[in-house]
Every structure is written in C-alpha cells, then in structure tokens.
Design a protein around this nucleic acid. Structure first.
Lengths: 346, 346
DNA sequence: CTGAAAGCGCTTACAG
DNA sequence: CTGAAAGCGCTTACAG
C-alpha cells in the first residue's frame, strides 16, 4: 500500500509538502498542489488514519455504548447518531452492552484504548467502574436516554412524565382502575422514572400502585413474559399492564397469548417506546413515543461541542402518547374505532 | 494519561521490558514482571491501541458493512458478528449503508483508512468501486448474506431455495394459485435469487409468475407499500403476496390495512426473514427463517481464518419455512388452527 | 512556499 | 533477562 513517501517521490516533493496539500494547508503553491493531487490519484494513495491519529492525538471517532442493539429504540438511536456524526465528520463505533455492566465496561475500556474523541453512553446500571473512570478521566462524554445521577456529564433524554400522565388519564377514562407496570431495572434512571411517573399519575386519579402490581423486569422480552405471568396468576389480576419498554411488551404479548387469553379483552397492554410494528400487532399497541431521531442528533451535537471545548448543554425533549387499541379503546364489539393521536404537549 | 514511559520510570525498568510483560513475552524475570504489573496498576496505565496498531500493522478490528441496520435481520446479524468477534479477540466497527451504494463506499473507504484487519460485507449492489477496489487490493474479506458474483471472496449465506419450495407447496395446498412477489433490488443476489426460487417453485406446480405479479421493491418498507398497492389495483389481484424481506412485508401490511382490507381474508402474505414480531402481528405472518446467529458466527470465523492466512471457506446454511396464519392457514371461521413448523430439510 | 527533522506511543530485532 | 535504538506513517514547528 502506497505511503506518503511514495507520493512525495512520485510528485518530486517532500513529504511535508504532500502532507500540507492533503490537509488543505494554505501556503502551498498551485503547482505543488497539482503535482501532489496527480501523484495521489496515480498511486491510489489513502492516508493512514492510524498514523495520523497517533500524531494529531485525535481519531475523529465517537464511541456509542448502548444497552441493547436488538431493541428497536436503540437501533434507531444508533442510526441517528451515526448520521449526525457523519455529517459532522466523525465516525462512530458502537458497543452493545446487552444490559450487562461487565460488557458495558469492556466496551468503554476498548473504546478508550482506541482513543476515541468522545463517548456517548446510555448506562446499563448505576455506573460501572470503567464508566465512572472515563467520566473522571475527563474524556468528553454525554449520556443519552439513561444517565447517572451525580456524574457531571450532559444528559440528552426525553421526558415521559407528561405522556405517562396522558396515558393514565386515557386508561382512567376507559374505566380501568387496576393498573400494573412492568418496570425496568431499578439501577437505570429510565427504569425508576417510568415507575415514579406512573405512580404519580395514578395518585392524581386517587389510584394506588400496590407492590403486587409492580413487576421487576430488565428491559428484555423474557422478563416481560415472566412478570406478566405473575400478574395473570394474581387472585385479582390488573386490568391493564404498562410495559416500560417495547421488548417487555413483546414478552407480555407472548405470555398472554400462551395462556390462550387475548389483549385487550382479557387484559390491556400499553408500552413505553413506540415502534413501527406496534401498528400491526394484534391488537395495535397504545404506546408512548420518544423523538428518537432528535435525541440522537442532539446527543452528537452536545458531544462534539464538548470535544471542541464547549459546555455541551443537556437537552430534554417531550415524549407523546399514541393511542391505539390495546387498552380496550374500541369498546366491546366495535371493529374499527377511530385512532386519535394525542400529544403530551397540548 | 500515563504512557509506557511513565510505567517504565515507575517500575525502574526500560520501556522495552515493560512492553514485553504487557505482551506476555516469555523472557522476562518474575521480579520485572511484578514490578511492571504493580506500576501499571498504580498508574492505571492502558496501552495506546493507536500506537500499537501503527507499529504492529494490525488493529484487531473487523469492519462490517451492512445494507440496513434498521432491518431486524441485519441487526441480529451484526450482534452475532460482534459476539463471535469479541470471543476471538476482535472488535467490530459497523457501517450502515442504508441500501445506498455511495454510503456503502463511504464506509468501506473509512474502514480501510482505519486499517481494519478484515472486512465483512453484505453488498447493497453489484459492486461499488470502493468495494471492488478493496477486494482487489487484497484486504481480507468475506461476503455475508449477499455477495457479488465474479469476485473471488468467500461467501457465508443461507440458501432459501428449499424453503421457498416448501412455501409454494404450502400455498398451493391451501388452494392458492395467483401468487405474487415483492422482489428485492435486482442488483443484489438475494433480490434475484428469491424471485428465481419462487418462479421455479411455481413452475413445479405448473404455475406461472406473470410480470404483473413481480413488484420491484428495494428491501425497505415504503417499497412494500407501493408494490402492494399496485397489486391491489390489478383487475385480477394476487391471492397471496410473498415479500422478499420483513420490511417490505411491513409495508404490505400497511397498504392492506390502509385500504380497509384484511390479511389473509382479502389477500395472503408471506415473508422472507422471520422476526419475533411476526408472532404477534395481525395475523401472525408465515415466514422463511434464516439461521442468522450461525451465519454471523460462520462469517467471522471465515474472515479471521483469511486474516490468519487461511483460505476462509464459504458456507451455505439452509433456511426453513415457519407456517403461521397469514396465508389463510386457518381456513374461514377457524379461530386457533395448529401452527405446524415445517423444516426445509425433511 | 518548501524541506529537514523531531516526535506521537508503541514493538522488536540486535547486542550484551 | 534487559536495554538502547530504530522505525511504523504521519504532522508540524522551525529555518530558510
């Protein structure tokens, strides 16, 4: 593979001059520029990014550590992050933690070893040693979606409180009173917040959230299945189950179907995080949608700002309720009810 | 950040010795080893992977260029690839081509600039210049899922022929005769092969595949929607539509629903690539499942073999038909028909 | 505007 | 077993 020396030889100039034209340095004669460009073309030369990074101490690469790539929410987030990063001249390396703190640590360590310029993370837990270390070491960093309280890092996320309030009002209006939740891990902010928001919203309607109606999940389908089975086994099962993410909703659907029961007739279902498939599930699932694309974009902007020495402002975007048919919205016997979309910000 | 020199100073040894213990070189005294280990610990030293790569000319990194991350099939493939790579001591950088040759080229170029040790690609088209160049330049490379005829690179893929035959036999037994397909891009092998397999299978039953029943899609939901609308507008619409991937099946579902029609009563639907959501769509979708995890694993093994100078054997794995209810399997009025799973290899 | 030279943080023959 | 030194492919003050 041709190196910069080959180009210099081919162009009859020094490597310094070649480097200058490669980097668009202003003080290069038009003649030299052309000779280098031609030589580069002839040799099919491509600068070695590894060498360049070592020398300049920047890789133009962002690390993104997400909790679970198989979760459509995170897949879309990753896509949006890559898009925005590319637009700003950065590459991104994705690390999939699979909701495992040890894997998360493995990825931040690997990413740091590669000297990425900045780190975007959606922490799996309350803070694995590697992650905390990275934050302390001063690596430019920003949290997306989930964050860690007490760690001084900008947070880009969406606030589901209003949407959860809308959801509960919606369920209440439908006549439901026994509402349960499949919670995410208590070690995550989103895991905790969604339960809190749900409980608060219930309280506003004079409703309680008994312990038996809080199932501990881990944001994966399997836990949604197990928790739902538990709910179904209760002497007094809930009327509606609210899954704190789309994968646990999938699990809930599995569990209900495995019992030969139906949604929403036997039990209602709502989910946090909307995905295209929810339109076509049986029944279409009422969900809370986050502005994923915007979150990804904002996160990259904040991170790049930090990298360039800026403050990297936090941003919070609203989520919104999307009403469909999984909570008995049609009423018994009604085939094709209207499907209004309600926004959390009226 | 501490460098190897700091460690050497701290340990009272030369950087050469430090490097040796870091790399597990045998000829190092026990005493030196301990002093270095301690110094590393004290300083929280981590080797700079960029410098190491420059020196050793290997990055222990694999590039994976896929056609569309948002497609659950590829997401799962990417996950499996990363898992196996990690097990073998490699990291992977994912490039998402979004079915665009230009983006694909952007990613292979970037990946090559970073001097990845090997490239895994599922080509978006018949071969963008960058990709062909990489293959010619001798970068260790293997194709996954899709490949490019005439390019001498191992191929790891799944053969859907038998499963498509099973599907057509299944549809024929159900009494369907007018079968249509939403094809993938003709520039991709999977786009062509699935149409060919479908046509052959039809022929075996004395059925034709008229041009009007071949809709040109691009593996994305939007095209599935458009093609399906076209089918529905035909004077004689097909009885069953076979979507060549899961995203186009989603689009088909959208289109049918938008017309106020239903699957399978008004039109049947089958899809290539099975995904968890197909169990819960309305109705559950009959699909052809690929052994994705195994494909990912095999692809990484082949690539690493190539990197280490081996031949990197091609591998082809069978796909299988999963019968559900989207083709009228229940018959009119039957609520819960058995859902047999038929394997393509009897 | 151009070039010689130093140096980024490592690894690895080569001596000893 | 250990160290001094060269070198991986670049970029960038420093002179001229």
């Amino acid at each position: 593979m041709a190196g910069i020396k080959d180009v210099a030889a081919e162009a009859g100039l020094s490597v310094a001059t070649v480097s200058r034209v490669l980097n668009g340095h202003p003080s290069v004669s038009e003649d030299a520029r052309r000779r280098v460009t031609d030589a580069v073309e002839r040799l099919g030369y491509r600068p070695n990014a590894v060498a360049r990074s070592l020398r300049t101490d920047q890789t133009r690469t962002l690390g993104l550590v997400i909790s679970d790539v198989m979760n459509p929410y995170f897949t879309e987030l990753a896509r949006s992050v890559e898009e925005e990063a590319r637009a700003l001249g950065y590459s991104v390396i994705i690390g999939n933690a699979d909701e495992r703190p040890d894997l998360q640590d493995h990825h931040v360590t690997t990413l740091l070893d590669r000297r990425i310029d900045g780190l975007l993370v959606s922490p799996t837990d309350g803070g694995s040693p590697g992650m905390l270390g990275a934050a302390r070491a001063g690596t430019p960093m920003v949290f997306v979606d989930r964050w860690i309280p007490g760690v001084d890092v900008p947070v880009v996320r969406s606030d589901g409180r209003a949407a959860v309030r809308d959801l509960v009002a919606h369920l209440h209006a439908l006549g439901h009173r026994r509402l349960a939740i499949i919670a995410g891990p208590a070690a995550t902010t989103t895991g905790r917040e969604r339960v809190d928001a749900f409980r608060e919203a219930l309280a506003a309607h004079g409703l309680e959230l008994p312990d038996a109606y809080i199932g501990q999940g881990d944001f994966q389908a399997g836990s949604g299945r197990r928790v739902t089975e538990g709910f179904l086994d209760l002497p007094q099962p809930p009327e509606v189950v609210f899954a704190a993410d789309n994968l646990m909703a999938l699990g809930a659907l599995d569990a209900v179907r495995a019992r030969g029961l139906g949604v929403p007739d036997d039990i209602g279902l709502a989910a946090f995080d909307d995905i295209p498939w929810f339109v076509h599930t049986d029944p279409p699932v009422t969900a809370i949608a986050q502005p994923v694309r915007d979150l990804g974009r904002a996160a990259v902007r904040a991170l790049v700002d930090r990298i360039e020495g800026g403050p990297g402002a936090s941003v919070t975007l609203p989520a919104r309720l999307v009403v469909r048919r999984s909570c008995g919205e049609g009423g018994p016997g009604i085939e094709n009810p209207p499907s209004p979309v309600r926004r959390s910000t009226p």
